[in-house]
């Protein structure tokens, strides 16, 4: 498993070398194919809608193409790529300037409606479905930077050290922030069930 990951990282660096030195479009195409799904998954959950996520994805890979020459091969391509992705996402979030509470409650309601029992599996209990619903609702109400941390850790499976590198924070800080996010999500399990529209932001 580790060898496969190492080989994959080496391939990324080789492709970046071709892109940076020769402007190799085919190398860029392969990089996009290798990372497109992960970048889109990160962006769509980070911004909350597919249309904007598609635009943001294009901006991320445009920056990869343009600024490939600035990539330092001493570091993993994945952390460099997701540093770009988080920057693009944060810029988009700053531009939105919309009321976060209203938007989050709407998103949380839509998110909760997307949890069908059949998707999770026939053996799942009603109690577990309820747990998932509550956690999803609570995630949608988290601040953007906390959702970003969840995505980097659980969706992209970056280590705390890697997240620290791409966010410019010490590993210990990232770790404590992640536990703080989990603690906030635990409160969703402890709270009595109530209509989602009444959830405090």
């Amino acid at each position: 498993m580790e060898d496969r990951e190492t080989a994959s990282a080496a391939r990324d660096k080789m492709l970046m070398g071709l892109l940076a030195n020769d402007g190799d479009v085919e190398a860029f195409r392969e990089l996009v194919e290798r990372w497109d799904r992960r970048v889109f998954a990160f962006l769509v959950k980070g911004c909350g809608n597919a249309d904007d996520a598609l635009d943001l994805r294009q901006e991320v890979f445009l920056r990869v193409y343009r600024y490939g020459g600035t990539y330092d091969a001493d570091y993993a391509f994945s952390t460099w790529l997701f540093r770009i992705a988080t920057n693009v996402l944060r810029t988009w979030q700053a531009k939105q300037r919309r009321c976060p509470a209203t938007a989050s409650i709407e998103t949380a309601r839509a998110s909760a409606e997307r949890i069908p029992d059949g998707r999770i599996g026939p053996r799942i209990t009603t109690e577990r479905t309820e747990t998932l619903t509550r956690v999803w609702q609570r995630i949608e109400l988290l601040p953007p930077e906390d959702r970003e941390l969840l995505l980097l850790r659980l969706q992209q499976e970056f280590s705390y050290r890697e997240i620290g590198q791409l966010r410019g924070q010490p590993e210990s800080t990232v770790k404590s922030q992640f536990y703080a996010v989990l603690a906030r999500l635990r409160t969703a399990l402890a709270e009595p069930e109530r209509p989602i529209g009444s959830v405090d932001a």
Binding site: D36, V135, L185
Partner: peptide, 22 residues
């Protein structure tokens, strides 16, 4: 339980059109 819910949320990603590299 929290992590299970969070992972499910992270992986709840709809389909998407591939990027037009050219």
């Amino acid at each position: 339980r929290v992590l299970e819910g969070a992972r499910a949320w992270c992986e709840d990603v709809m389909g998407y059109a591939p990027l037009d590299v050219d």
